[in-house]
Design a protein around this nucleic acid. Structure first.
Lengths: 234, 234
DNA sequence: CCAAAAGTGTTCCAAGTACACCCATGA
DNA sequence: TCATGGGTGTACTTGGAACACTTTTGG
């Protein structure tokens, strides 16, 4: 890397794709912008990185500032990619944004915070990503694609359910995020047969009708061999 | 994203993990640093992003400046991730680096260029990544891991061979990058059976001994269904 | 007893593995 | 004709898909 004491000056931000399931629908956390540019439009939460903080720390901090959610609610966080096209932000500064995907199971309703921007959960089905500010449509679709892909070969799905969960609940995660239904019987055998994916507990839960289901916790495995498979995209 | 007219000031760089095969060994392009910090140590090529250029453009530009390689030699480029821990660069500026993986088949010997830094190809087997400057050990291993993983489910391997190639040559790519040998017969059937992965040409090539092999070009497919599989990591 | 959800058994088929064997060429 | 790498045949095994069937609960 070359070095000149005079180098171009950038602003660095983080943008957050915060995903959760609410009533079996995949939802993303959006804020309504209070100031220009794009005032009144929907946008991903995010903000400037401070000079003395790690990029991941900035992601957690902004999440907390914009929603009141602490790190204990985050079940998964992963860097997505960095968006830096000149002009992606209309302001005169050159703004490069490091995007993150954040997953959780029991996120409550967000609490409006310092920035006075109203944060809320929006089901992806109800959202026209074209309405989003900046290049956030691209960031959001990249983030959702990443989550969909990682369900296949990692234990990511367990980030969307509570500590203890039934196999149907886990199947519901796959069905909601992939948007297709899976055979309950084969799913059951597959996940219980993958070593160290699920750890059975002593508990059972009876949810009204039907035979009570056994509860599991997530096991130590993060990669699934063989992977879960969804329909082949053309 | 919130906005304050006073925001922290960052330098943004690109770092490049440039990979190619030379004599069936996976090699990475490294430079020997000419100036402090880390003068005399090996490092990944890279440099500051300019205010008016795209991040990907900066990657291509730095590649050209440090090696003389033009974009026509690049068979694949992909953003890896962004490294931004405070203190990852010992200089007082806060430096955030967007890392890229760049692949090619016929990269020549690099030409020493403007920065007077000597660039050269180093086989990964011969390299102790602990010798690298900055956090480049982490970036390099992340980049190689990414390439290894993407061989499984994309047509990335064709970025390491010439326009026209034999199936053995393609198999050699997998063997070199995965470090394991594959059954030639099954490999043949698998890649020829994957729709739109390979396009046969009229040409054959006879390489000294043995029956001449048919030459193929890469087909339009970028994702492989089903994927190529390597041995299960424990 | 009936409905509903959990969970098991069984059959069929697609795909991977191992390896024997044939093909086409240069020396 | 022999060595060598290209390429095919085939039997075995593994794992996914489909779906019938049994189990366990609440009403």
């Amino acid at each position: 890397m070359s070095f000149r004491s005079e180098h171009p000056v950038f602003a660095v931000t983080v943008d957050l794709v915060v995903l959760t399931l609410r009533e079996r629908r995949l939802c993303v956390l959006l804020i309504e912008r209070g100031v220009e540019p794009y005032a009144g439009q929907l946008a991903l939460p995010g903000g400037f990185v401070r000079l003395d903080e790690d990029l991941e720390h900035a992601a957690y901090r902004e999440l907390h500032e914009e929603t009141g959610f602490g790190p204990e609610l985050v079940r998964g966080i992963e860097q997505l990619r960095t968006y830096g096209a000149p002009g992606r932000d209309p302001r005169p500064e050159r703004v490069v944004s490091v995007a993150w995907v954040i997953l959780g199971a029991d996120f409550p309703e967000p609490v409006a915070a310092s920035d006075a921007a109203a944060a809320s959960w929006v089901a992806l089905d109800d959202l026209d990503v074209g309405d989003l500010a900046f290049d956030h449509a691209e960031i959001l679709t990249d983030g959702v694609d990443r989550a969909r892909a990682k369900l296949e070969y990692t234990s990511l799905a367990t980030a969307f359910v509570a500590e203890e969960f039934t196999i149907s609940e886990l199947r519901g995660v796959y069905e909601a995020i992939w948007g297709e239904s899976l055979d309950a019987a084969n799913f059951q055998r597959k996940v219980t047969g993958t070593p160290n994916f699920l750890v059975p507990t002593d508990h059972r839960i009876s949810t009204g009708r039907g035979r009570p289901a056994q509860l599991f916790r997530r096991g130590p495995t993060t990669e699934l061999h063989p992977p879960m498979r969804r329909g082949i995209p053309t």
